[in-house]
Computed example of a mutant assay.
Amino acid sequence: MNFIENADRDMAIMNVAHALTSDLRKCLLRHEFASFAVPGGTTPGPVFDAMSSVEIDWSRVHVMLTDERWVPEDHARSNAGLVKSRLLTGHAANARFISFYRDGMTAQAAAPDVSAALAGEMPISVLLLGMGADMHTASLFPRAPGLKEAMARDAPLLCAVSPPDQPEERVSLSAQALDGAMDKHLVIFGDDKRAALERAMTLPALDAPIGAVIKGGTVHWAA
């Protein structure tokens, strides 16, 4: 795991955006398309803003989420809505977005269909992750219902999960799908998250899911 300490959060955002677009460019030199998996939440928004103005061949980039709340894309808590408003604008508006949400279906019912549709996107070319202070990543929450299945070696690409403290049902890329990404990046801010990440590397995966997927990746940190 490569750990990069940035002078401040603004510098981290610019460095992460540069690293991600560089990885996408390199992938497009070798492959027909690049699959790019990204999180929701507040941290990646500024990274998306910076990336959307960069000129690469976005028409060959396939953007998907690492996880999604099971709500329509026009819902205020939709990760898809965030990605479309912050990343898929400017030059990046030409990227293809792969939606997980299926109207009229539960997450549990839709997950196998979405998993099948994602098979051609694997392995993920470039992955951006976030992490909570509880050491969750994507929607892989420690000891949550469905986590064991999502962490299994034979897990489907997309799994339905139901974190007990979250208001909606969710879907998440499985640990195998995340860990298999060719280029992996994690962005975290604050001393509490740095300490949580260091602790995660000493714990079982079911207690600290981030530890199962970030090995071999790059961590971008700022206070």
Rank of each mutant, 00 (worst) to 15 (best):
G180D: 07
R25K: 14
A177W: 04
P156K: 13
L87W: 10
F33A: 06
C159T: 07
G190F: 14
R69L: 09
H185L: 04
K148Y: 04
D103I: 01
G81M: 07
P112V: 13
V61C: 00
L88V: 04
G45D: 13
L186C: 02
L197H: 01
D10T: 13
R194K: 15
T218N: 14
P112S: 14
E121F: 13
S99L: 06
A196G: 13
T137N: 01
A19H: 08
F100M: 11
A181W: 00
L65H: 06
P123I: 07
P156L: 15
A155K: 00
M105A: 03
L118K: 11
A223C: 05
M201K: 05
A177C: 15
N94A: 15
D8L: 11
T218F: 07
Y101N: 01
L127A: 09
L173H: 02
D179Q: 11
R60L: 01
Q176R: 07
A111Y: 01
R199M: 14
A92N: 04
A152V: 08
A107M: 10
A117C: 04
K215Q: 14
D57P: 01
S52Q: 00
N15M: 04
P72K: 07
K184Y: 08
S35M: 13
S59E: 04
K84W: 02
G41M: 05
Q176M: 10
V54Y: 06
W58T: 03
A80D: 00
S115K: 03
I188D: 12
L127Y: 10
W221T: 11
V71N: 03
I210E: 13
L29W: 02
M201R: 07
R69H: 05
E149G: 06
D103Q: 07
Q108R: 12
A50R: 06
M131K: 05
A196H: 07
R102V: 08
D49V: 03
R30M: 02
G216C: 07
E121Q: 10
A37E: 03
P204I: 15
K148E: 02
P209W: 05
L157H: 10
P142Y: 10
H62K: 05
A181F: 00
P142E: 14
G81N: 04
D191R: 13
R86L: 03
L157Q: 06
V38W: 07
P72S: 10
H62L: 03
S139G: 01
R25D: 15
S172C: 15
A92G: 04
F3M: 07
P72Q: 05
T106L: 08
M14R: 13
W70L: 09
P204N: 15
D113Q: 05
W70F: 06
D23W: 06
R96L: 15
S99R: 03
R194E: 13
A19N: 06
T89M: 06
D192A: 09
V126M: 12
D57E: 10
Q166D: 08
P44Q: 11
D8I: 12
L140Y: 06
I13Y: 09
A205Y: 11
L147P: 02
D74K: 02
A212F: 14
S85L: 13
I13N: 08
L129R: 15
L88A: 07
T218V: 12
W58D: 00
D10Y: 14
